[in-house]
Write a protein that binds this DNA or RNA. Structure first.
Lengths: 337, 337
DNA sequence: TTGTAGGCGTTATCAC
DNA sequence: GTGATAACGCCTACAA
């Protein structure tokens, strides 16, 4: 390991025969430097392999050019086979890359991790913080915002002392479209597998289900899930126990829908002949399920992109950040319903 | 947004009626501070909500307590439905969390992104750099190592000017076990869907296939893939075109195996009756495929954990880092073969 | 257009 | 034990 001493501005200046200030100007792209000198400096930078020390730089500029994305989950949940996080990371990443900002991903599943994240952000390690999802009345977004740190949430924060701008999708509209499709095709005993009720996405999809069925004068039947495939299997079994004649299920996530498909198959039900199934997400794999899944598509990657864009505006000091942006959802009809 | 001024050491010192040096000692947990003073300082820290400025701190300590994990792919590839990256991130993340280090994930798919990553690391933003996978003769690991930055790779780097320590799995052993299983169960026309040949994982699995078949005196039949499901579909079709009587396929990744299952079904072949299929990875979803996939399990998350552990030792200055650690693979027999 | 000099917030080396 | 004080490497008025 060649622990070569890292050259400083000073070293470059000496080599180029100019002052530190001039080197700094060239490095930062100032236009008020004579061409000859600029070239001499650039040559010296090249020869020495000079790269500015980030700590020294941000000590004075108070900027780091990197932005955090908080995943308030354990690594195990974030990167299991749930494709929500990957999609949002993809969206955020592409947008920040275009802006030449560095994305700093942070998993904050444990209490310790949570605290580390807070300190990390407050310590000025990043210029802003985005939240990929929010559990319950999470105090962190408000806390950081109060510290003067730019914050944007994906998903409406349930609590936000200083209101934090957010990006979300139209849960209610998507659910309503799904249920209308089921009702129109003659289904009358429509159950749901709900998502976790400490998350806005889980709450709003369940509310949408209840409201729509009530308006249609149909009974509702609810089983609890947590967005995972396993919980879908369990919930589907519970639903069949409660009403063996149900003819449709709306699952609040694609993974739970896949679990439901599996449980239905094991119970000897045909999909969609006996029971129609609709999910929510439209992950890639839902095109390959057996049968291919009818589902509500939510533009997760797009939400990530929009969130990153809002963050960049916030950091740039744009005073007119929309307090909320709601992206549309769309029913994708395949075979399962 | 309450842009409250961030308190400094100075402010805390004034409030507690001590010097900056003493506050620094307390904050950093020095034991040589009188109890009464320590408490006074802690109170002041609490009241002011003081958090050390990371830039100032690392300017002098030359440490950041964060470690980068480079994903040399576009965000689209990293977080598609390929579960390799999530697994390695999970492993690395859990280990670093335990060590109270911050994991900084960086996607470096584009040339620009690649360059940004290099600068980011050289600028001293992180204490060390891990590579999640390596394409071809990637110069970056060696380049960073030459700069004196601690580097660990997952997967043997093909090029490493100063040799870089790495963690990998036993590709050859896994492939051999898979092929032995096929041969033992009577298969004689065993094809393979190879992975990308610019990656060690792709290379070694193909080599393992060729060597084992040759030793068994069986013919080999190879189609190229790139680890994705789609490439698996295409490759399987090509293989059937070349030898419609083949009776087994070894795919170098689970996703390609899934693609192969799909293509075989579409071609009217039964699995495993007509054609046996074996994959490589053992992702969660492979337990749910139709039929459940026989596959070579590689301990990806464990590789991530080991890699992180080596990195921590490297940073701590441990002089005895193993140049290579190879983790075992295991054949998981399900239904497809 | 270029150079000088002060300061960003910490840590660490000294005396006291 | 505690307090001055000098770095750490860079940016940026301000002067020249």
């Amino acid at each position: 390991m060649t622990t070569r001493e890292r050259p400083t501005l000073e070293a470059v200046a000496r080599r180029a025969g100019v002052s530190r200030a001039t080197v700094s100007r060239v490095v930062n792209g100032s236009t008020t430097v004579a061409v000859a000198i600029r070239e001499a400096v650039n040559r010296a930078v090249e020869e020495l392999g000079y790269v500015p020390n980030q700590a020294a730089r941000s000590l004075v500029t108070r900027q780091t050019d990197s932005i955090a994305l908080i995943l308030p989950e354990t690594a195990n949940r974030v990167f299991s086979d749930d494709l929500f996080f990957p999609a949002i990371i993809r969206g955020v990443g592409s947008e920040l890359e275009a802006a030449d900002k560095q994305l700093v991903l942070m998993m904050a599943g444990s209490a310790a991790g949570y605290h580390r994240v807070e300190r990390y952000a407050v310590a000025g390690h990043v210029d802003g913080v985005m939240f990929a999802s929010i559990h319950g009345a999470d105090p962190l977004p408000g806390l950081l915002a109060r510290r003067g740190i730019p914050v944007i949430c994906s998903g409406r924060p349930m609590l936000a002392d200083p209101p934090v701008p957010y990006v979300d999708v139209d849960h209610a509209g998507g659910v309503a479209a799904a249920l209308r499709h089921l009702i129109t095709s003659g289904r009358r005993r429509i159950a749901t597998i709900a998502g976790p009720q400490d998350m806005v996405a889980g709450l709003e999809r369940l509310t949408g289900y209840r409201d729509t069925l009530q308006a249609a004068g149909l009974p509702s039947l609810v089983a609890a899930g947590d967005f995972t495939r396993e919980s879908g299997v369990t919930a589907m079994r519970a639903l069949l126990d409660q009403d063996s004649d149900l003819d449709a299920v709306f699952a609040a996530s694609d993974l739970m829908a896949h679990g439901a498909l599996q449980a239905l198959r094991n119970a000897g039900r045909r999909v969609p002949e006996d029971v129609a199934v609709i999910g929510f997400d439209d992950f890639e794999i839902s095109r390959y399920s057996d049968p291919p899944l009818t589902t509500v598509r939510q533009p997760i990657a797009e939400a990530g992109r929009v969130m990153a864009r809002q963050m960049l505006r916030l950091i740039a000091g744009d005073p007119e950040i929309e307090p909320a942006i709601i992206l549309p959802t769309e029913l994708i009809i395949r075979t399962s319903a």
